[in-house]
Amino acid sequence: MNDNLAKMREAAKRALESGDVGYVIGWGATKFPDKTSPLFMRKPEDAERLVWNEYAIPGIAKYLLDDLYPDKPIGVFVRGCDSRAINRMMKDNRIKRENLRLLGIPCDGKDDERCTICRNRNPLVYDELLWDEAPTPEPKDRYFRANAVEAMSADGRYAYWSEVFDQCIRCYACRNICPACNCKECYVDMTATGFQGKQHSRSDNLIFGVTRAFHVGDRCIECGECERVCPMGLPIMGQTQKILKDINELVGDYESGVDAESENYLGVFDLDDKDEFM
């Protein structure tokens, strides 16, 4: 058992014993050795089931949306990406800081392509830090998917996205896991017909894909959970990366979820906005 895991179990146990939190969210083992699943610890002894290894990849913050009005604060382990997810949902007025007990765990990076573009391994918001922060290594190409698609011709891109969305089964797993997809009721769940329809057709799927990308848009925290959970393995970070790339090229460094105060770039109007496209 590694040191850090011991610290995490200890922290979870302490929190549960004190009765300050209703439950703590972390990671637990599954029947597959290389997979973990979210773990909801309610009793101090549940802390023994906590795992922390190279497979503790899934984002766990989104589960906070399932319990918006808890009687007691909810404990959550937060890495950099989880903390950005939490900032995201706080900025969107969905969760409240006072309902959270954030156990900060600086991450060492996991064996996953999406972790190579991570810009914040250390949590950006937390109540206590369980071990020392370490610098985040220089991230690899932040727009790796978008760049690949941008390099294609217009027809090539159309063919590419058509092929991608021909495979989409509209399970909405990407929507369910995404911390930016935090609406009370998602538009895809409301009955819709016409071009917003839900047939398994190329056009309906493409419209869904592009709408999802724009709804997430400038609020994407670049955690890549959408791709991780997609049962069809679709490379949909290419869409959100493209939007972020455009924003970054237009206005300079922009990142969502680094705090819970900064405005969403596309969500405000400012006289000093760059408007070279107008």
Binding site: D92, R94, N182, C183, E185, M190, G267, V268
Partner: peptide, 26 residues
């Protein structure tokens, strides 16, 4: 349907929108 995200509040050029607290049941 409104989740109170406030996106509309920020975008309204006439400051016509405010967020207000309502009583609800969950």
């Amino acid at each position: 349907h409104c989740c109170g995200c406030g996106a509309c509040e920020k975008i309204c050029p006439y400051t016509a929108i405010t967020l207000e607290e309502i009583d609800d049941r969950v």
